[in-house]
Design a protein around this nucleic acid. Structure first.
Lengths: 333, 333
DNA sequence: CTGTTAGCGCATTCAT
DNA sequence: ATGAATGCGCTAACAG
């Protein structure tokens, strides 16, 4: 059912129908009612493509995330979806699978007129290789972009960031203030911007507290086969507290501690990141820094839509979403 | 950069440019090359909306899932995305949040010409209230639909199902054959079609094995506050094996067993469902039925695309994807 | 108050 | 081998 068919049925012109349906003041109430009734009766639905083509906007935004099996990113996505829908936008999701090449493909797909704007968190490979040409291209095509979490400051666009640095400081302070003497930092994915920030928060706090003798860093290359490495580390250094820059890493450490019968939190306190289902449901449950992922998604989309409406491609704001430390059994007695 | 602009630049007609870019045999090699070069130089990208409007297809498919924080659904989504992209389709995801009203909204949004077909797993509320008018409406509008996992057989369309029934039988048989004498079934979300199937698989196997004295069913209404209920159940009935129809439920039970110092798997064996990250990373790790979610996604999209291409809205096939039992510490000594 | 017309970007039929 | 003309469904400026 199209405007044309409807107009034929009613014996009026196409534009009369169109204007009636858009409640234009040019049209008399009587014809409006007639049209509205017919539209309902024949179940008329305006064609979305034609509307978009005409209006030069798609009311769709593209989201590119590195990994859809990661609780944090999915939660951000939920925030984006939720707020976008509320503001009358649809969302197309692309998964870069942590690969630069896929990310480039995704950008190509999205910049052919399918979306009004893009929200992206960079893939690991993109952050390692520092190749941002695809993003510069999109910006040159006047498509507004908002980055979140994994961002590059070389790209001029709005950024929504977690407060990784301050949260790490807070967590580290907590461990120090609660009598931990043998502190460790556990790292994985060191090439990520956020991981660097988290590590810096840890080190800076140690320095500020004149805490000199921390243990060597537990550095994990491949989280899948990390357990033996963790076993060795716990035996060698016997830390009484570990700050982990990653949720899964904190889980692996708790798991190993369970196996080795190390008492948590009495002998070993642990704080992780992201506060996903694993941290919550694990036994013992794991203290974690909650990044407020949904909020990050909502901020990102709000900022993007505001830029779209203002035709603003040059905005270079930075929004920092506060994080909070959630205490669970791995730090509470 | 549009065809029009390009044609002006080259001093040829729009249709010549269009045909050249589509490699039409009507155009001479020389002009083709000229056009192709110019297109590349000025970074011409065909407008997706205009193409879709003209071709009367969007190369986009809509997916409606009840919950995006559920590992199973996300994995299905990954399968869909992966295969869709391979076949040149985009994916728009909608989240019904287990609500009928949202599902209806989603369908409305998708049936206004934005997508060529729909993949859906019904929300809990839809399955409870058995109200499928929105889906009948979509089918009447000639939009092909494929259902997966949570389906209704009252709706005439292709369905991709997990092999819940057989998998449950397999799991139950395993528990019986490995000497369990005090068997329990743990239920949650009883209104879901898949849960009913899983329970039936359990009961039928007991009957087949002449296993008369199973314990009363552990029935959880609200998984969030389930721990006290589980504590009481374990104390009262002291089962030596529990078959859980849900992943999170199996986790809760293992957690409680840990607290009560019940030895797993020695005193209590547990098998759960869905085989997500929780089952894999938990301590002790939890045996689980792997539903091969990604495969389900791939099958769904393949079937849908085949129906789209064949303009087939009346297909009523049922595809069953086999499931497998993954043994972990909760059943292995 | 209603209708005619043009155009969004593209593909395609039909002339030339 | 190339181009003019038409239309996909819609909106809106303009004319009546």
């Amino acid at each position: 059912m199209t405007l044309k068919e409807l107009s034929k049925l009613l014996g009026v012109s196409i534009s009369t129908v169109s204007k009636s349906l858009n409640n234009s003041p040019e049209i008399s109430e009587t014809t409006k009612q007639k049209v509205l009734n017919a539209a309902k009766e024949f179940n008329y639905r305006p064609n979305y493509l034609a509307k978009s083509l005409k209006a030069r906007e798609t009311k769709t935004i593209g989201v590119i995330i590195p990994d859809v099996l990661n609780y944090f990113f999915v939660k951000v996505l939920v925030g984006i979806e939720f707020e976008a829908r509320k503001q009358g936008y649809k969302v197309v999701t692309c998964i870069s699978s942590e690969k630069l090449s896929t990310e480039i493909e995704n950008i190509k797909l999205l910049t052919n007129g399918s979306v009004d704007g893009i929200i992206i968190s960079l893939s690991r490979e993109t952050q390692t290789e520092k190749n941002y040409n695809h993003l510069f291209f999109a910006l040159n095509s006047k498509i507004p972009i908002v980055q979140f979490d994994r961002v590059s400051h070389e790209i001029n666009c709005d950024k929504v960031l977690c407060d990784d640095y301050n949260a790490s400081q807070k967590a580290t302070e907590y461990l120090i203030n609660n009598g931990c003497k043998s502190l460790s930092l556990a790292l994985v994915n060191m090439d990520l911007s956020v991981v660097k920030l988290r590590a810096k928060g840890f080190w800076d706090t140690l320095q500020k507290s004149n805490f000199i003798n921390s243990n060597p860093v537990l550095t994990i290359d491949n989280i899948v086969n990390s357990e033996e490495q963790i076993v060795a580390y716990l035996r060698d250094y016997k830390p009484d507290a570990i700050f982990c820059v990653d949720e899964l890493l904190s889980v692996k450490i708790v798991k190993v501690a369970n196996k080795l019968n190390i008492k948590i939190p009495k002998q070993l306190k642990i704080i992780g990141f992201s506060n996903g289902q694993l941290s919550e449901e694990y036994y013992p449950s794991i203290s974690s820094i909650d990044l407020h992922a949904k909020k990050i998604g909502e901020e990102s989309i709000s900022q993007l839509i505001s830029n779209i409406k203002g035709a603003n491609v040059n905005s270079n704001k930075i929004i920092v979403v506060p994080a909070s430390l959630v205490h669970r059994s791995s730090t509470n007695l």
